[in-house]
Amino acid sequence: MANDPTHQFVVQPIIPMEIGGWDLSFTNASLFMVATVAAATGFLYFATASRSLIPGRMQSVAEMSYEFIAGMLREGAGTKGMVFFPFVFSLFMFVLTANLLGMFPYFFTVTSQIIVTFALAVLVIGTVIVYGFYKHGLHFLGIFAPQGVPKVLLPLVSSIEVISFLSRPISLSVRLFANMLAGHITLKVFAGFVTSMGALGAVGIGGAVLPLIMTVAMTGLEFLVSFLQAYVFAVLTCMYLNDAVHGGH
C-alpha cells in the first residue's frame, strides 16, 4: 500500500449506496468533492462576510480572485461574456481548491480522475454549444467557417475546425487530469525512494537525501502546477465561451 504510487487514486466507498442498479456510493472522491466545495465556499463566504470598504487579507484574496476571473473573462469573451462569470468563477475555484486540497498528504485529489475533468470539460463545451445555438441559431455554425478563406479551401478548413472543436473537451480534460495524476505519481515515487533507500543502512540514508530534496522541490512545483492548471482551465473556458458569445462573426 505504502509503495504503490497509484493507490492514492483508488476510489473507495465510505457510505455504500446503490440506486437503480447503479453504484452511487459516497466515496472518498465524493468526500473530497464535498470538502472542496465546503472549503471554497466557506473561504469566500467568511472572507467577504464583513463587506469592508477597506478589505482585510482574506477579503483581498477573495476580491483578487473575483477580479482575476472577471478580467480573464472580459479579455477572453468580451463584456457580453460576463454573463458566464459565475460559471467560470465556480470552475476556477473548484478546480483550484480541489488541486490544492490534493496537495495534503493522504488527501484524495478530485481532479486526478479523468471522469471528473472530462465531465467539467463536457460541461464547458456543452454550455458553449447550447448557448451558441440559443444566441445565434444556425449562424453559430459560422465558427467552423472562418472569414476570408477561399471557397476551395472551405471544406478542408471547416473539417479541421470541426475536429479542433471536438477535440477541445478531450484536450481540456486530459491536460488537467494528466498534470495532476503525473505530479502526484512523481511525488509518490520520489518519496518512496526516500523510504526504500533509507531502509538500506547508512549509505542508503545518505543517498536518500537526493530524492528527499527532489520531493521537496517537486512539492513546490506541484503547488505551482495546481494553480497553473486551474488558470489554464479557466482561460481556455473563457476562450471557448467567446465562440458561444460572439458566434461566427
Partner: peptide
C-alpha cells in the same frame, strides 16, 4: 465502476457550488 458515483457526486457538489457562487458570492463580491 467508479464513474457513476463520481459523476453523480460531482453533479451534486459542483451544482451546489455553482448555485452558491451564482446567488451569494459573486453578487456579494
Amino acid at each position: 465502476a467508479t464513474y457513476p458515483s463520481q459523476l453523480v457526486w460531482l453533479a451534486i457538489t459542483f451544482g451546489i457550488f455553482f448555485l452558491v457562487m451564482h446567488k451569494v458570492i459573486a453578487p456579494r463580491l
